[in-house]
Amino acid sequence: MKKTIISLSILLSCAITTNVNADPKTPGTEKGYSTIDILNLGVPKDLNTVSVESLSKELAGKPSMAVGFDVDDTALFSSPVFYRGQQEFSPGGYAYLSNQDFWDKANCGWDIFSMPKKIATELIDMHQQRGDSIYFITGRTGSDCDFTTQYLKRVFNITNMHDVIFAGSSREEYLKAKHIKAHNIKIYYGDANGDIISARQAGAEGIRIMRAANSSYTPIPKNGLYGERVMLNSQY
C-alpha cells in the first residue's frame, strides 16, 4: 500500500507540473530534441541550428529593427527564484504560481539571484551593436515595481532600456503575440513552445533558446519541434 501511495503521489506531481507548464495545444511538425537529448547525443543533423556569429552575418547591412526576449530560461536562469518561491509559499506544490505575494517577491528583488545567460549576453551585445531596439516580454504575472527592468538593464548593459512587458499566462491563447506585434518585433527569442508560436502569430521569427537541463521549469521542451531555428550553445 505504501508503494502505491508513493507512486500515486509522483503521478499527481507530474500531472500538476505538466498542467502548469502547458501551452494551448499546437501539434509539433518535427521530432524535436530536448536539451538533455542534445547533451547526451550531441547536436542532431536534422536540427535547424543557428549561431550568434552566423546570425550576425545574416543581419549585416540590414536596417535596425526591434527584437524581443523572453525572460525566464531565455535571458535569465531564474530557477533559484522559483525554487525559493515554492519552498516558501507552497512546498511540494505549484500553488505559489497563483500567489501574487510570490510574484511580488520575484519581480521586486529576488531576481538578484537570477543568473544572466551567456547566450543572452552575446545576442544582446550583437543587437545593440546593430542599433536594434530590445524588448523583454515575459509570461510572469506583473508587480508594482521595476526591479526586474533595472536588473536586466544592468546585467546586460542595455543602453535604451524599455520596461519589461508582463504578458501573464493563459491556457487558451498566446498572450505574448499581441505585444510582439504591437512593437513590430522581427525576431523573438524564447525557450518555450509558446514563445515560438507567439512569434509566428505576430509575424516574427521565433528562435529557440535551449532551456537548461537543470531548470526547475519542467518538462524540458523539444527544441526544433516546429522546425524553428535553434540557437547553438544556448543552454547556458
Rank of each mutant, 00 (worst) to 15 (best):
S98M: 09
K186V: 12
I209A: 11
R211I: 07
S198C: 06
G28Y: 01
G139E: 01
G32R: 08
M65W: 04
A213K: 11
K222F: 15
T17G: 08
K45T: 13
F156H: 06
V43S: 06
M1H: 10
G61Q: 03
R154K: 12
Q235F: 11
K222I: 09
C145W: 01
L47S: 07
N40A: 10
H179Q: 00
A15M: 02
S13I: 07
L55N: 10
L39C: 03
D101A: 15
F156C: 01
Q100S: 12
V164Y: 03
D72Y: 13
E58R: 15
D163Y: 03
Y174K: 04
N193E: 00
A15D: 00
G93K: 07
L76E: 02
A204S: 07
S64A: 14
E122H: 11
Q86E: 15
V43W: 00
G28E: 00
D104T: 15
K57D: 13
E53R: 13
D195K: 11
K222M: 12
G139W: 02
P219R: 13
D70Y: 08
C145I: 01
Y151M: 00
R84F: 08
A75E: 01
K45S: 13
T218F: 11
V20K: 06
N48C: 12
G93R: 05
G227H: 12
S78K: 02
L11G: 09
Y96C: 15
G203L: 03
V81Y: 08
L12H: 01
A212F: 02
A192Y: 07
E30S: 12
